[in-house]
Amino acid sequence: MKLKGYRSTYHEDVRHYVQTEELLRYTGTPQDNIAISATTPTHHSILVYEKNQLVCFFALDEGALKTQYTSEPSAFVLRSFSTDARYLRRGYGKQALMLLPDFVRNQFPDIKEIVLGVNQNNLPAQALYEKVGFVANGRILQGPKGPQNILMLSI
């Protein structure tokens, strides 16, 4: 499995990425995040490949919004994490999250923490994040899709 920063050469893979309405209740689309990344240098779209197949997507955001999640100035907000609907329940999401700390250390050595907001109703996602080492910091934010528990992972 490989984590890669988005490049235009991956456009067709992203175009064929499948998200169901159920999944979109809790997360953003790769296309929306890639559009943000194109104009915002602090928003990094990351693709996760298993062999030659795009299986997961997320964004790492180091913009000003992170202050709502953490007081750590050298932090990323993990946003819009998803698995292509055709590849759910195969362990790809867990594998990608387990690779994330080393990826960040190698690509962004100044980052000390990753934080995220997970919808309180999205119990499977919350369990996944906790399984790979994210810890609730006790904060709750009102997100665009409902209240979110804030979780953090030290790098």
Score class of each variant (00 low, 15 high):
Tyr26Pro: 05
Tyr26Asp: 02
Tyr26Ala: 02
Gly28Pro: 05
Gly28Leu: 09
Gly28Phe: 06
Thr29Leu: 10
Thr29Met: 10
Thr29Ile: 07
Pro30Asn: 05
Pro30Asp: 02
Gln31Cys: 01
Gln31Val: 11
Asp32Arg: 09
Asp32Thr: 09
Ile34Leu: 07
Ile34Thr: 07
Ala35Gln: 13
Ile36Asp: 03
Ile36Glu: 07
Ser37Thr: 11
Ser37Glu: 10
Ala38Val: 01
Thr39Cys: 04
Pro41Ser: 11
His43Ala: 01
His43Gln: 04
Ser45Gln: 04
Leu47Ser: 10
Leu47Ile: 12
Val48Ser: 06
Val48Cys: 07
Val48Trp: 03
Lys51Ile: 06
Lys51Tyr: 11
Asn52Asp: 15
Asn52Ile: 05
Gln53Thr: 15
Leu54Asp: 07
Leu54Met: 06
Val55Ser: 12
Cys56Phe: 01
Phe58His: 04
Ala59Gln: 12
Asp61Ala: 00
Asp61Tyr: 01
Glu62Gly: 13
Gly63Ile: 01
Gly63Met: 03
Gly63Gln: 03
Ala64Cys: 08
Ala64His: 12
Lys66Ile: 11
Lys66Met: 09
Lys66Gly: 07
Lys66Gln: 10
Thr67Ile: 15
Thr67Ala: 12
Gln68Val: 02
Gln68Lys: 14
Gln68His: 14
Tyr69Arg: 12
Tyr69Asp: 10
Thr70Val: 10
Glu72Gly: 09
Pro73Gln: 03
Pro73Arg: 02
Pro73Lys: 03
Pro73Phe: 05
Ser74Phe: 13
Ser74Thr: 13
Ser74Tyr: 14
Phe76Ile: 02
Val77Leu: 07
Ser80Lys: 04
Ser82Arg: 09
Asp84His: 04
Ala85Glu: 06
Ala85His: 08
Arg86Trp: 11
Leu88Asn: 13
Arg90Ser: 05
Arg90Trp: 00
Gly91Asn: 09
Gly91Arg: 04
Gly91Val: 13
Tyr92Leu: 08
Gln95Pro: 03
Gln95Lys: 14
Ala96His: 12
Ala96Ser: 15
Ala96Thr: 12
Ala96Gly: 15
Ala96Val: 10
Met98Arg: 15
Leu99Ala: 12
Leu100Arg: 05
Pro101Asn: 00
Asp102Trp: 07
Phe103His: 09
Val104Asn: 00
Arg105His: 13
Arg105Cys: 09
Asn106Arg: 15
Gln107Pro: 09
Gln107Leu: 12
Asp110His: 14
Ile111Lys: 08
Lys112Arg: 08
Glu113Tyr: 07
Ile114Glu: 02
Ile114Lys: 00
Leu116Thr: 10
Val118Leu: 01
Gln120Asp: 13
Gln120Asn: 14
Asn122Trp: 11
Asn122Thr: 08
Asn122Tyr: 13
Asn122Phe: 14
Leu123Arg: 13
Leu123Asn: 07
Leu123Gly: 04
Ala125Leu: 00
Ala125Cys: 02
Ala127His: 15
Tyr129Met: 05
Glu130Gly: 04
Gly133Cys: 00
Phe134Trp: 06
Phe134His: 08
Phe134Met: 08
Ala136Thr: 15
Ala136Asp: 10
Ala136Cys: 13
Asn137Ser: 14
Asn137Ala: 11
Gly138His: 08
Gly138Trp: 08
Arg139Lys: 15
Ile140Asn: 03
